[in-house]
Design a protein around this nucleic acid. Structure first.
Lengths: 238, 238
DNA sequence: ATCGCAAAGTTGGGGCTCCAGCAGTCATCG
DNA sequence: CGATGACTGCTGGAGCCCCAACTTTGCGAT
């Protein structure tokens, strides 16, 4: 706050202000390193660092060979959780109901539970579960990663069975009574960054979802969403 | 993925791996810039950049004069939304029920709604609303920021009234029937970063919460939580 | 044994430079 | 007239350096 703040902060704050008040609208070209050094009378290091900070905040994006641009608002598509939708994740179903063309690839494999899953599914660490990886795309672009874990006996045997977890469980005599979702945010792992084609500086929303039948967890999954594209919407009756 | 990846990435990935597999446990000292240049045979710039990337991911934290350390797991305190708690936000109430000593400061002021709030409260842009800023602290440290907006007629007149929004609304003949929360993640604004004492690289969870009485919004608030300390937990009956 | 202080080590800000790779632009050549 | 290629400007990686502010450590004196 003092007058002797780092000089790169002066640049960061001035550009950030211009973005927020609309002087630099989405898509606008930010002055280049060389221009910033002249404009703010700072060294190249400071100009460069300022651009990196703004990029890591997700406000601007650097296009190599071209320049830094103000990020498009990307509009934070809402994902509504007020109805119970599956097929095969409720998020994909909600996007479809909003008119998105959602497609997905998946593959299943057996896996050992391990400590984390053992806790979440309340099974033994050495138990074998079915792990299914999904990659969801909307209009070609990757939208969401999901990894679902189920005890072997509940694994789907057909494409149709995969559509609705609730129906499948019901067929096994298990009635799902509750869904618990735990959301946090973190920097993407390198593999997620690549799979979701994330610009640097974008964090992910990590949703840990568990389906319960009474006091027994019957399926759990990790869902990874780009933090700059989605908001999770929860509706609760009082 | 090729062998000619940036060299700083080699350093980042190696340290990240060591943190994930436990070779470098929480609190462990990361080699210094000088040591990294020797160990990985890279220049100082690359070593420095690697440390900055790890810090911006929230994996390590730099202590000036001392060194970089693996961040303590900070345990992502869960905030449960399965019961309707207020007084004055449900998150604070949930933390109290987990044994935290939560205190808060607040101040109210009239404010013009403006376009964003006009949309959220379904009022005219020039309507005056009561804006209340809260700063919540747990064990001394800042935990959460909240800003609540209410039409003037619903504003609380006593400390007691402030405790329960539901009861207060009921006293006005308004029965709250639904709570809608919309969660996204973003980089903190400078003021939030300062107020919450956030390390660089930590994003925030921004919860937009609106209370509805039938099809009419009667209160809305913005809640800002450090992304590295909390996870939101939603429980929904099927 | 303890206190104080100086030296060494470390981070973070800042400066300068070189280079590879990419994207436009513009002029020249077929 | 159209296509090719040279040139310029930009980003991102990388190297090296200096300095201020701070911590840790270890030594020497009391």
């Amino acid at each position: 706050m003092a007058t002797s703040d780092p000089v790169y902060l002066r640049v960061v704050e001035d550009i950030r202000r211009q973005i927020h008040d609309g002087t630099l609208p989405p898509g606008a070209l930010i002055p280049s390193r060389a221009q910033l050094t002249r404009k703010y009378q700072v060294g190249e290091t400071a100009a460069r660092h300022a651009l990196r900070v703004l990029a890591s905040e997700g406000l601007i994006i650097g296009r190599i060979g071209s320049g830094h641009y103000v990020r498009e608002r990307s509009e934070l598509t809402p994902l509504h959780r007020w109805r119970f939708l599956d097929r095969p994740t409720p998020f994909a179903a909600d996007l479809q109901s909003q008119g998105w063309r959602v497609t997905w690839d998946w593959h299943s494999e057996p896996a050992e539970a391990g400590p984390d899953l053992a806790r979440r599914l309340r099974v033994d660490e050495s138990t074998t579960v079915t792990r299914t990886h999904y990659v969801f795309r909307g209009d070609g672009r990757p939208l969401q990663l999901a990894t679902a874990y189920e005890p072997l006996e509940f694994a789907p045997h057909s494409e149709e069975e995969r559509r609705s977890l609730v129906a499948r469980m019901y067929a096994h005599g298990v009635k799902i009574t509750e869904v618990v979702e735990s959301i946090h945010t973190r920097a993407p792992r390198p593999s997620e960054s690549e799979a979701l084609d994330l610009p640097v500086g974008v964090h992910v929303l990590h949703v840990e979802r568990t389906h319960w039948a009474g006091d027994r967890p019957v399926e759990t999954s990790d869902i990874i969403l780009p933090g700059d594209r989605f908001r999770m919407v929860y509706s609760m009756p009082v």
